[in-house]
Structure formats: structure tokens, C-alpha cells
């Protein structure tokens, strides 16, 4: 029996395909978010996703259909709060994040019976991803990647120096909105891969690993995507053979690659 026999299972094929697309997407956006010190926005929005999913399960609506618009709206809310004077960006993320968690906990506590569903969203299970979810992941991932490609240079210039970009006539507010909305969509998609609790890891870890080894912005993006996708492949494989939870395994593989790249850089110095 071949080592890659496990890939003949259709659920494994679905997991690898959807996981690769979502991981690549997280890595691309993660580079922009980490460099702008906005990486915790992923964490904040994943907490909103928790509240939105609870709402969906409460009203018996497919959770993702509730989560997508609500998380996108929350991401714009964070931008609005940050623009308001006297509220710092991290505090704005904290406000929206706490609200999401509070609503989620409230709905879970007043309604019994859907806690098991919510558990699968909290910790993710890509091995249980459906065909429809795979298609949705692919379509949304390609759409988001195309939008990033279209606005690539504006995103890069604003990430490098927002004040300069604004002085050069770039609509930095619009660019910021595009970035957080794309992040919101990505966070909702990524919850199936690693779960709400670990979404921010998919945004942060491939980038910080790439930053240890890559030279130049394009190389960093490319390295982050490769690291993210390879982590998903290794994570899913280990999860299959060792019967480990897939989300946590993917994150631990990512972390291991980060440690290796960090040590490589230290030794190279």
C-alpha cells in the first residue's frame, strides 16, 4: 500500500484542496496584517464569528451565511471605531471581539442542543468539510486573491508607509477597508480548517516564518504561501495517521516551521 494511499479517500482530497486554498489566502492577507501590526484583527474577527455562528445555530440558519455578513460588518465597525478619536486600533478590536464572544456565550447558555455543532466550529475539522464548502472555499479564495492582486501595489505602499501613501494621493481609507473586509471573509472561511480558536495562527505564523528567511516583499509573500500550504498538507497527513485533531496539528506544524526558520536565521548570522 502506497504512503499516499490516504489521498484516495474523497474526504482527504476535499480537505487537501480546500485547506490549500484557504491557507494560501490566509498567508497572503497575513503578510499585510502582520506588517501593519494588525494581526490581532484576525483574532478579534474570529471571536465575532463565534457570536455569529451561535446566532445562526440559534435561528437554525446555516451558520456561515449568518457569519459572513456579520463578520464583514464588524470589520468595518473596527475601522470606524479606529477612525474615531480617542479609540486606539487594538482597543477597537477588543471592543468588537468582546461583543462577539458575549453574544455567543449568551446564546449558547440560553439554548441547549447545539453545543456539539458549535464545538466543531470552535476547534475546526477540515476532514469533515463538505463538497459544497470546498467549492465555496475555492470560489471565495480565488475572488479574494484576485482582489488582492488588483490592489496589490496600493496595499503594499499603504502597508509600508501610510502617511506617504496618503500624500501621494492613494485613498488609504479605502485600502484599509478592502484589507479588513477581505480578512473578515478569510476568517470565516478559515474556521473550518483550524477552528475559531486558532484562526489567527493561520494569519500570523506563515508570515513570521517567511519574514525569517525571505528577501524582498514578493519573496516574503511567496514564502508565506508555500509555508502555509505545506503546513496544511503535513498537518492533514499527521492528523490522519496519528488521529490528532486536524486544526491543532496544522497550527503545531506551522509553529515547528517557524522555530526551524528562526533557528536557521540565528545560525546564519
Amino acid at each position: 500500500m502506497s504512503l499516499f494511499h490516504f489521498l484516495s479517500y474523497s474526504f482527504m482530497q476535499r480537505a487537501v484542496i480546500a485547506g490549500s486554498f484557504i491557507a494560501a489566502l490566509c498567508a497572503i492577507l497575513g503578510v499585510f496584517l502582520v506588517l501593519r501590526r494588525l494581526s490581532l484583527i484576525g483574532d478579534g474577527l474570529s471571536h465575532v464569528t463565534f457570536g455569529a455562528l451561535a446566532l445562526g445555530l440559534f435561528f437554525k440558519v446555516t451558520p456561515i451565511y449568518v457569519a459572513l455578513p456579520l463578520v464583514v460588518l464588524s470589520s468595518l465597525g473596527i475601522i470606524k471605531l479606529t477612525d474615531a478619536q480617542r479609540i486606539y486600533g487594538d482597543a477597537a478590536i477588543g471592543i468588537v471581539s468582546a461583543l462577539g464572544i458575549a453574544i455567543g456565550i449568551l446564546l449558547v447558555s440560553i439554548t441547549k442542543g447545539f453545543n456539539i455543532d458549535l464545538f466543531s466550529y470552535l476547534f475546526g475539522n477540515i476532514l469533515a468539510i463538505t463538497k459544497a464548502e470546498v467549492w465555496m472555499s475555492i470560489i471565495l479564495a480565488i475572488t479574494v486573491i484576485m482582489i488582492v492582486a488588483f490592489f496589490y501595489y496600493d496595499l503594499v505602499v499603504v502597508t509600508f508607509d501610510e502617511e506617504c501613501a496618503q500624500a501621494e494621493g492613494i485613498n488609504t481609507k479605502a485600502v484599509n477597508k478592502i484589507l479588513v473586509v477581505l480578512t473578515a471573509v478569510t476568517v470565516v472561511l478559515a474556521m473550518k480548517v483550524v477552528g475559531i480558536m486558532l484562526v489567527s495562527a493561520l494569519l500570523i505564523l506563515p508570515t513570521v516564518t517567511a519574514l525569517q528567511i525571505a528577501k524582498g516583499f514578493r519573496m516574503t509573500l511567496l514564502a508565506a504561501v508555500i509555508i502555509a500550504v505545506v503546513s496544511v498538507w503535513i498537518g492533514i497527513t499527521l492528523s490522519f495517521f496519528l488521529d490528532w485533531p486536524s486544526g491543532a496539528t496544522i497550527v503545531l506544524v506551522n509553529f515547528t516551521l517557524f522555530i526551524i526558520s528562526y533557528l536557521y536565521r540565528k545560525i546564519k548570522k
Partner: peptide, 18 residues
């Protein structure tokens, strides 16, 4: 951001995009 992973050439090219 002083830790931005861009090369000198990439940074200079940013001035042409506006």
C-alpha cells in the same frame, strides 16, 4: 516600518505608483 521586508529597489519603485 523599519522591519518591512522590501529591498531598496522595491521601496524606490513605490514612488512611481501613485
Amino acid at each position: 516600518n523599519p522591519h518591512f521586508p522590501a529591498t531598496v529597489r522595491e521601496v524606490v519603485s513605490f514612488g512611481l505608483l501613485a
